[in-house]
Design a protein around this nucleic acid. Structure first.
Lengths: 345, 345
DNA sequence: GGAAATTATGAAAACGTTTACAGGGTTGTT
DNA sequence: AACAACCCTGTAAACGTTTTCATAATTTCC
């Protein structure tokens, strides 16, 4: 495993018997270069295995063709779907992804942003919690940035978010239309803007009807917290009619806890989620949920940012909201015994 | 959103009234700099919001403090757990992650590697399928690289892999010990080395006992293929005693198909998986599976690579194998009705 | 057949850092 | 008092590219 010294443009120039400038031209734009010399340069480059040093290039071109992606502590399928979407688009435009996940507080975000200076052309920042948000303002001054999710006043930022309020409201209407009145809501983590919006939506839905009550339980978007909260619920004097989980992962935990306790879903108790992660349709029973186009969100974010970087479409500081839709499966009690393929073709 | 010109070391030098070299020294190592001047430089840098341009720095230091991560098309929780592990360690050592996912064939991998030259100090490459493997040999010549997974002859590479064969064998022994004889095996994708090893392990387990038969069904590690394969199985004249899925995601699909068809798991048919993704314990019934320490795998890979880059521990071209372990939950029929917390505290 | 336009190439500057080297100042030692 | 040792700072070279400018070679046009 001897490591040979990296080959520079100088080596290629020598090998092909031309100047540095010619090599650069032959390999890049190609303007004003004889077909013959281009060939010679190309084959020399191939033979030597030359690959340009991107750091050096970006120093002069001011471009890195790289997107910085800042994510909070994100788990499970939501995370991978989102990355998949971002990566797919980035690849299409020949952009790279510099990833920093698991950032929670403002200090960490600021540090991550700082350490990416000169490495990236712009940022995609996922749903910073309220505290971390300040760190971003300084960011926006020097880099194009796009916020994914979040619901604060995003004055200076372009953002793409999800219709969390509407989705939660729609779910509540669906539940009440099925006759559920005593509904438990499993909240997301404190300080998470999306979680807050979903809670607001649920409350709005509850207050639309007289007889509907909403019990709010704390959670953190992880399976474990859905499990734990449901265990708690199982010890209360009366069970609710339905559990509305602020995301699907918690619904997974909730269903597990109920199964374990011998409470049948949806006959005795309905369970619904939010996100429609891929696994949702494969749960037992298949999960009724609010569909969020996760991968598309990532794609759209990457696309908008890249287009802005290429001066195709400026990054206007307005918010774009992705629609959600209700996906009815068996877990809410609406379509017990329905074949899984009927609702989700 | 006016974008101000980025601040260079030159600006800081002017502001602090010192030379470039002094600024560099004051901000980095700090050798031979008066406490007073350092203060002056620091405050000037802070005030201006100076952040060094990493590209320029790496040009001269030959370091980028960045790890290139090349992943195949990876789905769901396995993906996120792995990234989480890698990222956690990278962050601890102040390294960045340049991510390229969804690469399958050799050409794509080669392109990804090429486009990362000068951007990264080394590579973590996940389980390249057999065809893509050739692309890596050229890589190793110029960069330290570590292969995660895979089972080909990795002569030139340091690698970390999983005891896939042993795990599958252990699972087969467990199944037969429970009395299962007619076992269906849901294979992973063609050309995937890990999938091949798991299949070999299953075959070895089957051939250990006289009366055991193994039906092999094709799959691709995704939930859908587990669902589809099980549907197929449901149309066969006789059901097997157990379905052994080459990974947990397919087991999710399999259980869903069985539930939908009214076949009870594990009473009529056992289902087991491989990986122990976080959701496994929350399935209904909780999934018996082979535990793979996914996040730890990522951590270990990042750690070994970084240590090698820092010349602490050389990257020896030997393979390190992560142990697997059998996690018995309810889906295999061994512990029906057992509380979930008993097997997984 | 010469001037003008066009095309192809090379020399050198620039990008923002780090670092080798050198010089100037202070202190300590003889 | 001279000299060495040390500490601090500045100048300039280097890293590997792209790009501007100049120039040489070719073609076009009258």
């Amino acid at each position: 495993m001897t490591r040979t010294a990296p080959i520079t443009i100088r080596d290629v120039a020598r090998e092909a018997g031309v100047s540095l400038a010619t090599v650069s031209r032959a390999l890049n734009d190609g303007a004003y270069v004889t077909k013959e010399t281009r060939e010679r340069v190309r084959s020399a480059a191939d033979q030597l295995g030359y690959l340009p040093h991107i750091g050096a290039r970006s120093l002069i071109t001011k471009r890195t063709d790289t997107l910085g992606v800042l994510l909070p502590d994100l788990y499970g399928e939501f995370f991978s779907e989102l990355i998949r979407g971002i990566d797919r688009t980035a690849q299409r435009y020949h952009f790279h992804l510099l990833l920093a996940s698991s950032h929670s507080d403002a200090r960490e975000i600021a540090a991550a942003v700082g350490s990416m200076r000169g490495r990236v052309d712009g940022f995609i920042v996922m749903s910073p919690d309220t505290a971390a948000f300040a760190a971003l303002s300084t960011l926006a001054r020097s880099y194009p940035a796009l916020v994914l999710g979040g619901s604060q006043d995003l004055g200076a930022f372009a953002s793409i978010s999800v219709a969390n309020f509407d989705g939660a409201l729609a779910m509540m209407r669906h539940l009440t239309s099925l006759g559920h009145r005593d509904i438990a809501f499993l909240c997301g983590p404190d300080g998470n803007a999306e979680a807050a919006d979903r809670l607001r939506g649920a409350r709005a839905g509850a207050s639309e009807m007289q007889a509907v009550s909403l019990r709010e339980l704390s959670g953190d978007f992880r399976q474990d917290s859905g499990y734990a909260a449901t265990r708690l619920l199982l010890r209360s004097p009366t069970l609710p009619d339905a559990i509305f989980c602020a995301n699907d992962a918690m619904a997974v935990g909730a269903i597990a806890a109920l199964n374990e306790a011998g409470v049948s879903v949806p006959e005795e108790l309905a369970v619904v989620g939010f996100d429609d992660i891929p696994i949702a349709r494969y749960l037992s029973p298949p999960l009724t949920t609010i569909r969020v186009p996760i991968a598309e969100l990532g794609e759209r974010a990457a696309e908008r940012l890249i287009k802005a970087l290429q001066d195709v479409v400026p990054l206007e500081a307005h918010r774009e909201v992705a629609m959600t839709s209700l996906v009815v499966r068996a877990s809410c009690g609406a379509t017990v015994r329905a074949p899984i393929r009927r609702t989700v073709p």
